[in-house]
Nucleic acid binder design. Structure first.
Length: 306
DNA sequence: AATATAGGCAACCGCCCTTGA
DNA sequence: GTCAAGGGCGGTTGCCTATAT
């Protein structure tokens, strides 16, 4: 496994793509669509394997790719989502329009390198501390989030009190509520939407992200790397704002009537639920989270529809 | 100016999952 | 139910460029 039949061919070219190859691939896909990737190289006149073509298209040539630096809002989303789902880059990328899993992964990895090189002097915070309380250093918050996720990947069970959201007023994210309403041709099975649907469905039972002390059963699910935790829990529906057709989110990245922002077309953000309690500010040192309970007038940026 | 080092990023590798025969 | 092919994704590598010495 791993090596696909199309990649076994001796003639396949590897390494960087030339502008000519890019042009061939773009021309073929824009006129024919990609259909079966294994057939794309031959039909497009490329000496590449289908997998390579797929990767090149998804990570670089797609017309909706956003390039350039991550905005503060995007960084916040990545941080908060990574704290929840770990290294599931595709899942994280699905919430960042125009960003690829590869790009996010690269960004995160280089960021971790920086953090390792410049560790916080106060990073030995006890696990039971409430990391999102006011006055708690932003660097500490970042360090613990990173350390927790590194530990998570090693499947080291952490005390439930390690939960970064324990005692916090609300989870540090929003989620897409337009389940099943949009169609992504690259994801016809809707598996990501299914994940999100499960997230929402689990809201009524799981307490892991709530203000309540989690049960051991919830803890078991929290340390299972295959378990995708619900994105919100125990929410009061009053905290959520449903996005209407043609309406952009309020606060955070978007404001009503503001129209285009650096996140792209606001129409991409229809049908979102907004969590309106958290406020964050990402500076040079990382994330800075203010007292959630005092941030009622702010809104974290929205997630795009899938 | 030359060399060393670090950082960013594109691309590949290998595994798992899904699908269809 | 089994198997093979292909798609998807996370981990990793290696090249290129920028910066430091």
């Amino acid at each position: 496994m791993g090596q696909h039949s199309c990649c076994n061919q001796q003639k396949v070219k590897r390494g960087l793509w030339s502008p000519e190859e890019d042009e061939k691939l773009i021309r073929y896909i824009t006129t024919h669509g990609y259909g079966c990737w294994s057939e794309v190289p031959e039909k497009a006149g490329l000496q590449r394997c289908g997998k390579s073509c797929r990767l090149r298209w998804i990570n670089y040539l797609r017309p909706d790719i956003r390039r350039g630096r991550f905005s503060a809002e995007e960084e916040k989303l990545i941080i908060s989502l990574h704290a929840i789902v770990g290294n599931r880059w595709a899942h994280i990328a699905s919430h960042l329009p125009g960003r690829t899993d590869n790009e996010i992964k690269n960004y995160w990895n280089s960021w971790i390198k920086k953090k390792i090189k410049k560790p916080s002097t106060q990073s030995s915070a006890t696990p039971t501390q409430n990391l999102f309380q006011p006055g708690y250093s932003s660097t500490d918050q970042l360090d613990v989030i990173i350390n927790q996720n590194l530990a998570h990947q090693n499947l080291t069970p952490k005390p439930v009190s390690d939960s970064i959201f324990l005692n916090s007023q609300s989870p540090f994210f929003t989620f897409d509520a337009s389940l099943g309403s949009s169609c992504d041709s690259s994801n016809p099975s809707g598996s990501v939407r299914d994940d999100l649907a499960q997230d929402v469905q689990a809201l009524t039972s799981c307490k892991i992200w709530s203000n309540n002390i989690p049960t051991s059963a919830n803890f078991a699910s929290a340390i299972d790397p295959n378990y995708l935790p619900p994105l919100v829990d125990s929410m009061s529906i009053g905290n959520l704002v449903t996005m209407e057709e043609g309406e952009t989110s309020v606060g955070g990245c978007y404001e009503k009537q503001q129209g285009e922002t650096d996140w792209g077309d606001p129409q991409n953000y229809n049908g979102l639920l907004m969590w309106d309690q958290m406020q964050g500010d990402l500076g040079e040192e990382g994330i800075q989270v203010q007292d959630a309970s005092s941030a009622l007038d702010t809104t974290l940026s929205s997630f795009p529809s899938l």
